[in-house]
Design a protein around this nucleic acid. Structure first.
Lengths: 185, 185
DNA sequence: CACTATACGGAACTAAGATTCCGTTTGTCA
DNA sequence: TGACAAACGGAATCTTAGTTCCGTATAGTG
């Protein structure tokens, strides 16, 4: 199916993805399709040929970010110390998102957030992440009432604070407090 | 100066404020001026006579919310137990904002957030809030590296999680974790 | 009760940005 | 090397929502 794409089409699609990734990361969701097309060196029509909707393009980028989360979770699962594994899961995920304004806005997005077409990636991430958290709970390394269900919400919260202050980076204090709050007792 | 307003004008201004407060709270910042006008039972032109810009209207509502924060802070300052005062400051502020989608979006607003015309209200709030936090730090009731500077960021984070999940209310777990994270040691 | 400055209503105007359309170009295959 | 389907480019179109304008209505005043 992918093979059916003509050579130039495949090349252009890639250029669009790269340009979109960079611009969405830098400017957030409000970059215009026109800018993305210009940055990619293609026409507007070409962008629409590959991604019928702006949302489709955003979804694609969110999807790849989720895949990165899964990699992070799988790596964190290898860490022996249960508490450290949890801390790494949080910290690395946040770091991955730090420079990506588009993703931040996407997961904070108030409306629609159907995340259609992302379920699969979400599920792939939930597996290792859940195991990491449950292991820590069983080991008594974190408070027993914590579960994976809280993770997305907390990441949303941490993410939203990435905009704060001039230089940024203040969100690390937020993360710090949450990690401290995870301690049992 | 207020006296110069004609009776019907004063009445309409009030109707607009009430309608805007309700709609912004329910729908968030994306309600249209037209809806507000309709809900208030006045024409679009009338809304613009009183608030030259949509932003002016939002600012007005944010301002009154800040005044409420100040009241909360002053009340919390009366609490004897330093740790409880801090917890109350957080909890009550968050509660006040729970049903107000417009305010939430406003303080999370990525762009412009100049908050011109709010400096005064912000300063009025900073006074008692700072005293509450510093008292708790001095008493060893919360971690010593915490300061008022962290408060706005954290409120932003908590606020952003108010959208999460179906029923909502999950943000209380977020707040809970942060409060737990404030403990010294 | 006139008279006038204020205020009102809402159609019309704009701006911004997403999406469509269609004439032109180019890869692919025989 | 044709021939043609697949792709391309970007002007034109559509849509949405904020804002302006101006003819009409009315509170306040002498």
């Amino acid at each position: 199916m992918e093979k059916t794409l003509r050579a130039d089409a495949r090349r252009n699609r890639e250029k669009i993805m790269v340009a979109a990734r960079e611009l969405f990361a830098r400017e957030g969701e409000d970059v215009q399709i026109e800018q993305i097309a210009a940055h990619a060196g293609v026409g507007i029509g070409t962008v629409y040929r590959h991604f019928p909707t702006k949302q489709d393009l955003v979804t694609e980028l969110v999807r790849s970010r989720f895949q990165q989360f899964t990699e992070i979770a799988l790596a964190a699962e290898e860490i022996e110390d249960p508490a450290e594994a949890v801390a790494t899961l949080f910290t690395e995920s946040a770091n991955a998102v730090e420079g990506d304004a588009g993703f931040q806005m996407a997961i904070m997005g108030v409306e629609d957030l159907e995340w259609e077409g992302i379920e699969e990636e979400k599920a792939a991430f939930a597996g290792p992440a859940t195991r990491i958290i449950e292991r820590a709970v069983k080991a008594g390394a974190i408070r027993p009432d914590f579960s994976f269900d809280d993770f997305p919400m907390l990441m949303c919260g941490i993410t939203s604070t990435m905009y704060f202050g001039p230089g940024g980076g203040e969100w690390r204090r937020h993360l710090d407090l949450i990690l401290a709050g995870l301690r049992p007792g």
